[in-house]
Design a protein around this nucleic acid. Structure first.
Length: 463
RNA sequence: UCCCCAGUAGCUCAGUCGGUAGAGCGGGUGACUGUUAAUCACCAUGUCCGUGGUUCGAGUCCGCGCUGGGGAGCCA
């Protein structure tokens, strides 16, 4: 096959002219007497290319007028300036072939579909404008994440996907086993004998790469992970999926303030990246998905992020002139309505809340001198609330062991984690960012199932 | 997992007081020399989510179930 030219590249040409070949899928066909127009899209950009077919220049003109929406085409012709509004260039077709026909049963019509319906045809929805834009943005953002950390000398570490540590309290584990489901070997107590399983222990899919990430941070200084993460929680919300991608940087010789600095720089970098490198997509989202998206992302890109302690946050909420559905009290976690009030009404921009009560945070977070709080941070942003959660880690062995004991967390399976506090332990800090939540934030899409190619949620693993 | 809402043509939805089902879009056919989700004319399409019940009669009322969506919890 002679090589095609991507439509996105053609549209970047400063001048028309020349014979080119494009391939793509039909979005719309408009036939009118002796001339027909076919809009095709090849996924390389939003707008696609208009093919112009003329009866006296093209044999089989009438046959081409019956091409169905969704068909795959290969077209060669001259790239010309379009005389009509709506597109800069169009293709005067000299040769056209139908690579793959599509009949009238093609589920994508030339009209708006609901996102719920498109989820039921997830194999075809990437051919729509919205999902084309979402997944181009997602791809570029993934590259931007690596670029950000690489530019700053962070080591990219692949932490294991199969893990035996399920004691982080980060959610239910998916079991990984090769034992036969109906005749698994039992021990004397009648329980399944996992010592005879593939790994000779109970294993599952990772819920976080953080603990392993900490070990690498204590060898390479600054590291990050970016990989798939699994939670078997029966969560049915627009913000949760059973399989998602998480970004977790970890820095040695760093405290909570350093952690917040990194998070702030990271979020600002990604906003600027999207505005510059995905302008076409963001403009589309601003117009069709969330009015005001561009202004919101611009604001975050320029803002200096506010910081306040959990104590201060509670005081602000107690003095709020609005009434909340959920109680405000020192010691309780912030609800989404509280988070949104703080970031949207109190500071009107991104906000770090620092130093939460230890009771509502994980065992590995560093205990503060007040005996009541830990060095945790959440980054709250307008519209979505929490987008990043992080902490300085407890590097003092005795403190860590005492906290695990208080919480009833077995130390033996985490002997390797505790060892890192035994030899050359140092202050270190990191955070976690759900990649999909970032994509949602920068696209205005409000359901996580619509920013994952083939989302896994309770009862859904069809595609 | 809990609470709320919904399920009718390919899609989005209307359907009054319980009386035997409709619109727009999409699709098909035809017309039209430059369209932009083209336009105009004509044509076709139903397991009213399933199941049990109330009733002379159920898309409509009631029970149970399934599916989807939203909110909460959990969290990223």
């Amino acid at each position: 096959m002679s090589r095609r030219t991507r439509i996105g590249d053609l549209l970047k040409r400063p001048t028309p002219g020349g014979t080119v070949t494009v391939c793509g899928w039909v979005r719309s066909l408009r036939a009118s007497g002796d001339v027909a127009f076919i809009s095709i899209n090849d996924g390389s950009n939003l707008d696609g290319m208009q093919l112009v077919l003329e009866r006296d220049r093209l044999p089989s003109f009438d046959d081409f007028c019956t091409i169905g929406t969704g068909a795959a085409l290969r077209a060669s012709g001259e790239l010309v300036t379009s005389p009509a509004a709506g597109q800069q260039y169009e293709l005067q077709v000299q040769e056209l072939s139908v690579v793959g026909q599509a009949d009238s049963a093609y589920p994508l019509q030339k009209k708006r579909h609901s996102f719920e319906y498109l989820r039921s045809i997830a194999h075809l929805r990437p051919r729509t404008n919205t999902f084309g834009a979402v997944f181009r943005l997602r791809s570029r953002l993934a590259q931007a994440v690596h670029r950000f950390f690489d530019e700053r000398g962070f080591l990219y570490v692949h932490t294991p996907i199969i893990t035996a540590s399920d004691c982080e309290g980060a959610g239910e584990l998916f079991r990984v086993t090769t034992l036969p489901p109906n005749s698994a070997p039992r021990n004397e107590g009648g329980e399944i004998d996992f010592t005879r399983d593939f790994f000779a222990r109970k294993t599952g899919l990772t819920v976080s790469g953080q603990l392993e990430g900490e070990l690498f941070a204590q060898a390479f200084g600054d590291i990050y992970t970016f990989g798939p993460t699994f939670r078997a929680e029966n969560s049915n919300t627009p913000r949760h999926a059973a399989e998602f991608w998480m970004i977790e940087p970890e820095m040695a010789f760093a405290d909570l303030a350093d952690d917040a600095d990194l998070a702030e720089e990271f979020v600002r970098y990604l906003c600027n990246f999207a505005l510059q490198e995905c302008a076409e997509e963001l403009t589309f989202f601003d117009r069709h998905i969330e009015k005001g998206l561009l202004a919101r992302v611009h604001a975050v890109a320029k803002a200096s992020f506010a910081r306040m302690s959990y104590d201060e946050a509670i005081r602000h909420l107690e003095q709020a002139p609005v009434s909340f559905q959920f109680p405000v009290q020192w010691g309780l976690d912030l609800q989404k309505e509280h988070e949104r009030y703080l970031t949207e009404e109190v500071v009107r921009g991104p906000l770090f809340v620092l130093n939460y009560p230890k009771e509502i945070k994980a065992f590995y977070m560093r205990q503060n001198g007040d005996g009541a709080t830990v060095a945790a941070m959440d980054l709250l942003v307008p519209k979505v609330g929490e987008i990043i959660g992080g902490s300085q880690r407890e590097e003092r062995l005795d403190q860590l062991e005492r906290r695990m004991q208080e919480l009833g967390i077995a130390q033996e399976p985490l002997w390797w984690y505790l060892d890192s506090r035994r030899w050359g332990s140092c202050p270190h800090a990191g955070f976690g960012l759900g990649f999909e939540r970032l994509v949602m934030y920068l696209s205005g899409m409000d359901n996580i199932r619509d920013v994952i190619p083939f989302p896994r949620t309770p009862r859904h693993a069809e595609f």
